[in-house]
Amino acid sequence: MGHGRRIAYFDGIRWVTGLGNINWFKYASPVTFYGLAGRMIPWFSAAAAVLAVAGIYIGFFVAPTDFQQGEAYRIIFIHVPASWMSMFIYVVMAVWAGFGLVLNTRLSSMMASALAPTGAMFAFIALWTGALWGRPMWGAYWVWDARLTSELILLFLYIGFMALQAAIDDPRRADRAGAVIALVGVVNVPIIYFSVLWWNTLHQGSSISVTKAPAMAHIMLTGMLVMAIAAWMYTIAVVLVRVRCIILERERHSAWVADLVKEAK
């Protein structure tokens, strides 16, 4: 039975690659991707660790005290990278889920499922650090401000996506149902991003923008960007580990997984 499913799957891949012989679709095959991902994980993990140490060092030992906020501003080095990641991961997740829905490529849907827990974690860290920053600066851990509320909705969208997928037994149906939530929820991301412009919010505006000079000291900006790249590398490493687990779970009846398990012993 596993064999038949595999044949049907590779026929699907062949059909896609047949449209102009694009051979990057080679990596749309879970077998090939499993190996490729395994080779990439150590590099991304190492990069994440080195950059996080460098970013923390800049954030605590190089960046000076802020003249307005004192030492409390140092929360920025996790708050901003975590917030960016939470939004960016959601967009990437929606794109993969959309590909899975339209092209019916299983690996795309697996990528979407692998991204959700890490995105939810970053959304939670963004809210938590934001609360701890808001208390000394605004006098409240939480206000029903547009920026804060839309970020909370983002966390709920991630949780909804995961809960819905967990509730459906058939993986392909779970993929399609999750894709609908992911795609509908993506409208929330620009709302979060532009909330500080559209509404009169307590939350400050963007720290950096494409059109203006950054509104913060260079060394602070450097620390924040180093931490943001560390968060990127971390996300890629963790998501690749998770997608490999999902591939093994879903392809467990196939011959290649059997061979792999045999070799691992």
Binding site: T118, F124, W128
Partner: peptide, 29 residues
Amino acid sequence: MGGYAFYVWGSYVMALVFIAGEVWLLLRR
């Protein structure tokens, strides 16, 4: 931390706990 120890360390410790927790759960999985 200039009097902001609770807020600054509360942020960093929670982030560390979540990241370490995610890695641990994933490797266990």
